[in-house]
C-alpha cells in the first residue's frame, strides 16, 4: 500500500471535500452543538470514533452482503451497526464522564441520525475502498467534521459578544457564517 494515496484520501476527506462544508452532511450537530469550543471538540471526538468503528464494520458487512448477493439489505444493516456503535459510545461516556454526558445531551443519541456517518459508510462502499483505505477515509472525515465544528464554535463564541441585529440572531447568522466558511474551504480544491 503506498502512503501517498492514503495521505491523499485523508486530505480529500478532511479538507477538499469537507463533509460539513462541501457535502452538507452532519448539519444538525454542526448547528446544534457548535455553541462552545470545549463541547464541540468532544463531540468531534465522539463522532470520529463512531465513524471509524462503523467504517470497519461496514467493510465486513459489505463483503458478506456481496457474498450472499443481497444488496437491498445494505442500508438496513448499516444503520443497525451505526445505532449499536452509538449505544456503545453512549454507555462509555455516561460511565467515564457524566459531565460530558450532560453537556452533549440529546445530541449524543442523535449521532445515530447524523448523516455524516451513514454518508461516510455509503461513500466508502461506492468508492470500493479496502479496509485500510476505509479506515483512513473515516479518520479524515472525522477530522474534517471536528475542524468545521471547532471553527464554527470559535466564531460563535466571539459572536455572543457582538451586537447583531435582532432578525439575524440564531440560525440565520450561523448559516451565513457557514456559507463564508464553505467559500473558504473551496480554496483547498487545488490540493487534490
Amino acid at each position: 500500500m503506498n502512503t501517498a494515496s492514503l495521505w491523499s484520501i485523508f486530505i480529500n476527506a478532511c479538507l477538499i471535500n469537507n463533509f460539513v462544508l462541501a457535502y452538507f452532511l452532519g448539519i444538525c450537530p454542526f448547528l446544534g452543538v457548535s455553541g462552545k469550543v470545549a463541547t464541540a471538540s468532544k463531540m468531534g471526538a465522539a463522532v470520529t470514533f463512531v465513524m471509524v468503528i462503523s467504517s470497519l464494520c461496514a467493510f465486513g458487512i459489505n463483503s458478506i452482503l456481496t457474498a450472499i448477493n443481497a444488496p437491498y439489505l445494505q442500508l438496513i444493516s448499516y444503520i443497525v451497526v451505526i445505532a449499536s456503535t452509538v449505544q456503545l459510545v453512549e454507555m462509555f461516556v455516561k460511565k467515564m464522564s457524566p459531565a460530558l454526558f450532560n453537556a452533549l445531551g440529546i445530541f449524543l443519541p442523535l449521532i445515530t441520525t447524523n448523516c455524516a456517518i451513514l454518508g461516510l459508510v455509503l461513500f466508502q462502499t461506492a468508492k470500493g475502498y479496502n479496509i485500510l483505505e476505509g479506515f483512513v477515509y473515516a479518520l479524515g472525515a472525522g477530522a474534517g467534521f471536528t475542524i468545521a465544528l471547532l471553527l464554527m464554535a470559535g466564531l460563535r463564541e466571539q459572536l455572543e459578544l457582538a451586537d447583531t441585529p435582532k432578525i439575524v440572531k440564531g440560525t440565520a447568522i450561523t448559516l451565513l457564517i457557514a456559507g463564508i466558511l464553505s467559500l473558504g474551504f473551496m480554496g483547498f480544491s487545488g490540493l487534490g
Binding site: 452538507f24 432578525i167 464553505s182 467559500l183
Partner: peptide, 24 residues
Amino acid sequence: IMILPAGGFFTLAFWLLFFNYLKE
C-alpha cells in the same frame, strides 16, 4: 456561487432572514 455549496447556506440564511423580518 448559487449552485455551489456556499450558495446553499446563503440562500437558506436569506430565506430565514426574510421570514424573521415578516414575523418581526
